[in-house]
Nucleic acid binder design. Sequence first.
RNA 1: GCCGGAGUAGCUCAGUUGGUCAGAGCAGCGGAAUCAUAAUCCGCGUGUCGGGGGUUCAAGUCCCUCCUCCGGCACCA
Length: 511
Amino acid sequence: MGSFYLTTPIYYASGEPHLGHAYTTILADVLARYHRRAGDDVLFLTGTDEHGQKIQEAAAEHGLTPLELCDRMVDRFKAAWVELGISNDRFIRTTEPEHIAVVGALLERLHDNGFIYEAEYTGWYSVGQERYFTEKEIGPDRVDPIAGGPVTRIREKNWFFRMSHFRDRLVEHIEKNPEWIVPATRRNEVLGFLSQGLGDLSISRPRSRIHWGIPIPWDPDQVTYVWVDALTNYVTAAGAVDPDAPRGRRGFGEPLPSRWPADVHLMGKDIITTHAVYWPTLLMGADLALPRKILAHGWWVVGDTKMSKSLGNVVDPLDLRERYGPEAVRWYLMREMATGQDASYTPERFLTRYDELRNIFGNLAHRTLSMIRRYRDGTVPAAPADGLADETAAAVGTYRRGLDGYRLHEGFAAAMDLARTANGFVETQEPWALARRPDAAAELDHALATLAHTLAVLACLFEPVTPEKAAELATRLGLGGIPLFDELDRLNLAGNVVSVGAPLFPRVDPD
RNA sequence: GCCGGAGUAGCUCAGUUGGUCAGAGCAGCGGAAUCAUAAUCCGCGUGUCGGGGGUUCAAGUCCCUCCUCCGGCACCA
């Protein structure tokens, strides 16, 4: 049995959960469920990033303490994840005492290693917005992009991380490990970014300006700026750092038994630089291992922006979960987007994907169960179930290669294709014709046993995306649970009493 | 501006290292069947594989060039 540790970013607690958060989290959930089904011991981590100026200000506006505001937002995120069937093993909050202590320990390690220094940060500051803006944000007119007010060039004391020191090491690591950053286009971008040189990273802000943050251990007048605080959650949750141990035995350099390093960090392509540059260099600076893989996915875009905007009818796929169910949305998101690339969302495409779920997979289950009931009194016949053995083995192979290689859309296409193949098997076998011939009883048994077995395999293949429906299918097949991959070959459904039930994916009136 | 990616049937897209690669699904047309959620299955595509040039016995598949679209270019939650 292997072990698998995967993460989503922790989401900033100043806004409501949206499709971007949901896609990453569902992607992670599907992978987590797949690995559990493959027998791995999985740690699936998500959570919230709760420090910083925006939280501080939003809390003040609502007359709450920052932590009170975060508590509310955490409830929103957790509720959203429950509704979407997310099976995270751990939900981390950056306000947890353990995390705060680990961030302190990490900072001390970087400091002890000589990679921290004090300098002046220079940037464009908006007095009106009480924050810095980047060159890109203020544009050529040099006004703050929110209110259009003036920005001024100011300096303040910050602590800096000597990120530049690690540039060559990072480039070498990326070049020697072509699969470390996927997809390749993001890897190229990171290499291009690094080829232009790498500066140091400001890692603190004056407490006088931002009080809601983790103090710098050796300088209480400064608080940790976002990146070190947020990214460190991955090692906190892994148990890789023991902040209570004496310096030198906290897990840096000489690893403690833990879940670190992560097998994969998942994120949207907007924060690839953070995860593929800042984070690895921080880990290098603290003598911690690097994550095994960094996967940046694409965005959902709406095809005809102009038209949608003028009509005001931009539909969020998440809204469809009320009518079609959360698992239909999960299926659409995983099936339609080539993992890593952008995809365009349209209601028509969603309906196409729902229809295949309903007509190909759902209907296969329903017609099979109905025939077992009608022709064999609801009991799976004791007969060889090998009518589709080759096709099933091929589908499982393609499926696993797809998910192992983070091409989820290919894996799920293979699962759906197996259902198509099974429908074809029904047509060629014509069980209804066999049933009229007393001499064809063995053939009918063979056909029905084969179909029941195929459905059990499909329950396994669909479980990562549509867990509740897969569980329902397994129950109707008289199984105690959804089979693991290792169990597929020795599945025996003979004698199982099945129930037909309502269609797994009902017809939905699109109006 | 620099770097990178994409442009394949009406639509969404697959197409490893060049040689049944001209494909799948959806839509459309025709047919079969009736176990099933009017679901399923089978058959049907004269596509300049963005334009042009080149390498090769052979190129969506490599090279050059042009056009169009998109992404990245540091402290952005």
